[in-house]
């Protein structure tokens, strides 16, 4: 014990803690970075390039090698090597500087997209990961699953057609449902429609959409559309977005005013003395949560009112089918109601 000194012991402890923090802190920890770099291999690079080419060709853009090295976060020699390999495998056609997908490459890209979207669906339905994490996790997982596992996953999820953002999931044979929608930013005032797709890239814009509490499947009515702002009315609230954010929401235009959306509101907006009839549960409520709400009786046509207000603001207790059920505000906001007098 001759060498013991409390100050030294404390300093050593602090140094160790800092080291552990830098090694293992979420996402940016050195340990994770090294692990990810170790995992990055040719397969991943090839698959990411194919996906990128596929998406761009679908929107009519042809990329060249320079674009790839700029967009993708891999080191350049790895990209060049992968391109050579892809050409040799008949995935792409090198037309001068331009890269074009061949049928084999398209097929491969569709398989990766299928895995990605299925995994997002899985995360949404069967796990508790936050929405903002789905994309990142699927980006990683799409390289790890093989075709057989993907098909198994698909059948366990009931062969879904759309991922939670509203993107169609390619089938086993590469078939994809077609979305008939237009970007919100292009709609004239007073158009009535349904949000059918929320783009999850780029991350910054997606986070803004999440923060606005905009739900997929919601009916909307455009109230303002100009260069600086797109506003719309939905579920009893008014939403104001920048045009660039609105461009990431896809709307399917409804021919007639099927539901008089002026009356639809979210359960979270119900006041103590009001009564309402439930219209449905938003698509944003998924998996176990959704089934639980249905089990408790939050079904179309049921009357609901407030039983007790919480001293701390939430959860409030709602009286449904003679039972008092307390729900948190983020759940209540996903139950759609029509207020009655």
């Amino acid at each position: 014990m001759n060498t013991y000194d409390p100050l030294n012991a404390l300093l050593i402890f602090i140094a160790l803690s800092i080291l552990i923090y830098f090694l293992f802190r979420p996402a940016k920890g050195w340990f994770w970075i090294i692990k990810n770099n170790y995992r990055t291999n040719e397969k991943m690079v090839i698959e990411d390039i194919l996906k990128l080419l596929f998406h761009n060709e679908n929107s009519g853009k042809i990329l060249n090698t320079n674009n790839l090295t700029q967009i993708l976060n891999f080191n350049n020699s790895l990209i060049i090597k992968s391109i050579e390999k892809m050409t040799a495998n008949n995935f792409i056609l090198l037309d001068g500087e331009q890269l074009k997908l061949k049928p084999l490459g398209r097929e491969y890209a569709l398989r990766i997209i299928r895995m990605h979207r299925l995994w997002e669906k899985f995360l949404a339905e069967k796990t508790g990961y936050d929405k903002s994490e789905w994309h990142e996790r699927a980006e990683q997982k799409e390289h790890e699953l093989n075709t057989e596992e993907t098909n198994l996953l698909a059948s366990k999820l009931g062969n879904p057609l759309f991922d939670p953002h509203g993107d169609p999931i390619p089938s086993k044979t590469g078939k994809m449902a077609i979305i008939n929608g237009v970007a919100l930013s292009t709609l004239p005032i007073n158009t009535v429609g349904e949000i059918i797709h929320i783009e999850d890239e780029p991350d910054i814009i997606y986070k803004q959409i999440l923060a606005e509490n905009i739900h997929i499947g919601s009916h909307i009515r455009v109230t303002e559309n100009n260069n600086t702002r797109v506003s719309f009315f939905s579920e009893g609230e008014e939403f104001k977005l920048a045009p660039i954010v609105a461009g990431n929401l896809t709307i399917s235009i409804l021919k007639k005013d099927i539901i008089n959306e002026g009356n639809i509101a979210r359960l979270s907006s119900l006041k103590k003395t009001e009564k309402a009839i439930i219209i449905g549960i938003s698509k944003e409520s998924r998996g176990e949560n959704r089934r639980r709400l249905l089990d408790l009786g939050f079904v179309k046509g049921a009357t609901v009112s407030i039983d007790l207000l919480n001293p701390l603001g939430e959860p409030n207790a709602y009286l449904i089918k003679g039972t008092a059920i307390a729900l948190r505000n983020n759940q209540a906001s996903k139950i759609l109601i029509k207020k009655i007098n």
């Binding site: 508790g128 639980r292 207790a317 008092a324």
Partner: peptide
């Protein structure tokens, strides 16, 4: 964070 989270509370 990956575990499923549902909330409801019955007030009997």
């Amino acid at each position: 964070k990956g575990e499923v989270s549902t909330f409801n509370l019955e007030l009997p």
